[in-house]
Design a protein around this nucleic acid. Structure first.
Lengths: 117, 117
DNA sequence: GCAACACATAGACGATCATCGATCTGGAGG
DNA sequence: CCTCCAGATCGATGATCGTCTATGTGTTGC
């Protein structure tokens, strides 16, 4: 129970009824999860992930991703990079073409982390 | 397959190998999900949720939430509001004390949405 | 009714983010 | 080797966000 203003030297004000808090996640774990959710916190990136997920083998060529999200090519490239950095997609170059695939288990892991917060 | 530069009046360049894209999520759905993910995209809010989740009955008094995240009281209040607006927490006033609880099923629903992107 | 407490809101400020056009880099075809 | 294509990066710009202090609002105890 925290108090504000000048601290009372006498008895503390009445406490609320809640039992003492358990710890919850530590800072590192919270930061890790938040980083992934931040990557997902933008509609364009959610759409990109769902487009990749909808493809056969959960893999798509970049050229199939740009038009559906209606953004410029550099913007799509930027968003795809954010998703790779968050560990949600992997990137593979085949000749001229770049392919992005769901990182196996990544979304399931995040889902599990959420359910066991 | 999109081309850049001057459009070729002749045959289109060779296509990539990917099958035609399935639709993925529509814009509205992606925006809705992104809104919830954005609420989770900040370590302080993830910690707050986990602190609430760790409490008996998945409910906590605000006064038990401020100290562990190490932010000022108004900042914590702001973050709690964001989580309520995202539908992840509910708020109940009891006299002077405000209690926040996990919205039943909310985290499971988000987890399910993630797994079925 | 007043003072104290718990918490919400307002507004400012610095940091971060999404978007674009311009440009660069690497691969492929001729 | 040159040209074209696919996609990445850079830098600028406007928008959004996290944080704070100051302050407001509602509740409670005296």
């Amino acid at each position: 129970m925290t108090t504000t203003g000048a601290p009372a030297p006498e008895a503390a004000p009445p406490a609320c009824c809640t039992a003492p808090a358990a710890d919850g996640l530590d800072d590192d774990r919270a930061a890790t999860l938040a980083r992934v959710f931040k990557a997902l916190g933008e509609p364009a990136r959610v759409r990109l992930l769902s487009l990749v997920a909808a493809q056969e083998g959960h893999e798509a060529c970049v050229c199939d991703l740009t038009a559906p999200v209606g953004l410029s090519q550099p913007t799509v490239s930027h968003h795809l990079k954010v998703l790779v950095e968050a560990g949600l997609l992997t990137r593979r170059q085949r000749g001229r073409w770049a392919y992005y695939a769901l990182t196996p288990g990544a979304l399931d892991q995040v889902a599990e982390d959420l359910r066991t917060l």
